[in-house]
Nucleic acid binder design. Structure first.
Lengths: 205, 205
DNA sequence: CCTACCGATCGGTAGG
DNA sequence: CCTACCGATCGGTAGG
């Protein structure tokens, strides 16, 4: 059997396809992306893609699943024992950093939302809701202890997610308004700092 | 000439087409929407659409232009003479109300952003930047007068836009997390109230 | 993994 | 404003 060699190439190719697909799907959406373009970017023939992913829809789902772990998981959680200011700052900076490092992932999720999240709905009701519940528990505990002002934790988490992901999803508007060709790390940090200062101060008792 | 009668029907049909196109483009994107489907929803034959809009791209642009006035304009502005809390509350509630009443408009803009805003870029560098400049002037004036804490006005306005539009653009996630089939007016108001309280308190000197 | 190719869909036009 | 239809594109398969 020469399976070993084949398998290594297969794995490499699968990665190349997923990478190319992520870039194109995030930039042009599902219907705006052709298998031909993905094949081109992955440096393969178009029919060959179907040896790795049966259909275009399968490939799209694979891309979504691929980034789901990367997107939802490493977010971590607030430590109820920690100081609200420190914990929230950490959380917000982590989110901004993800918008900076993985803008395609952010955009593909946003695109899914805009279209009603047909594929992601299942995860939204599972993983994502759990994340929010955990977040809410900590916020409510802090409020009870008088460490922060009482606030609806669900709207708070939406506010944080929206404000941070905005820097990936609405990039063209941000570049146009700020009049820069590209945002550098300092710009993202300044954004995170602004968001932090408003939210942290906004939650002071 | 029977032009008068014809014109009236033509105007009515054009409206029907634009309405149908807005719904479908916002739900499925440009490439995910077919002229056939638009025709169906507008209750006309597909070839007849081309009598009103030469190409699909033209129709799409017409939809964008149509909502641009509705979206950017009536936002109004902050009154520098006014009380920061009152003014910001009004602004945020107006934005949430727009997300509630015109979610399709919000989503079509978001979709455009995700794809790099090829058509909207011109307006982003014009109208939208002007709006931000005007907003920034008021914020900075308030900060100088000591009415609010100094804060980067650009990041502040992005924060407000992102947080409010989120309730239109990320509807599926919001419904899944809140575990409701539909958000009613009270839900939107509660969201606006949460956003307001954090931002207004966050800006207190 | 490639060449060749099919069937379906879609935007747009002709012609009345 | 309709019927009929064309040309191009695209996802996917056959067969080797």
């Amino acid at each position: 059997m020469v399976e070993k060699k084949k398998t290594r190439i297969k794995i490499r190719n699968e990665e190349k396809i997923l990478e190319a697909a992520l870039k194109l799907f995030s930039a042009f959406g599902f219907h705006g992306t052709t298998m031909e373009k993905i094949a081109e970017l992955a440096d393969m023939s178009q029919p060959n893609l179907h040896n790795y992913f049966k259909t275009k829809a399968d490939l799209y789902e694979a891309v979504l699943n691929d980034i789901l772990t990367l997107w939802v998981d490493p977010l971590g959680n607030l430590d109820v024992e920690g100081d609200p200011e420190t914990e929230l700052r950490q959380y917000i900076f982590k989110k901004i950093e993800m918008a900076r490092k993985y803008p395609e992932a952010s955009r593909i999720f946003a695109g899914e939302m805009l279209q009603g999240a047909p594929i992601l709905m299942h995860h939204l009701k599972g993983q994502v809701r759990m994340k929010v519940k955990a977040f809410a528990t900590v916020i409510e505990s802090w409020a009870r202890q008088g460490k922060i002002r009482p606030v609806d934790p669900v709207h708070l988490v939406f506010m944080i997610w929206a404000s941070t992901q905005h820097y990936a999803d609405f990039m063209p508007q941000i570049r146009a308004v700020m009049d820069v060709a590209r945002l550098n790390k300092a710009d993202y940090d300044a954004a995170a700092e602004s968001i932090c200062s408003i939210i942290v101060n906004g939650l002071k008792p």
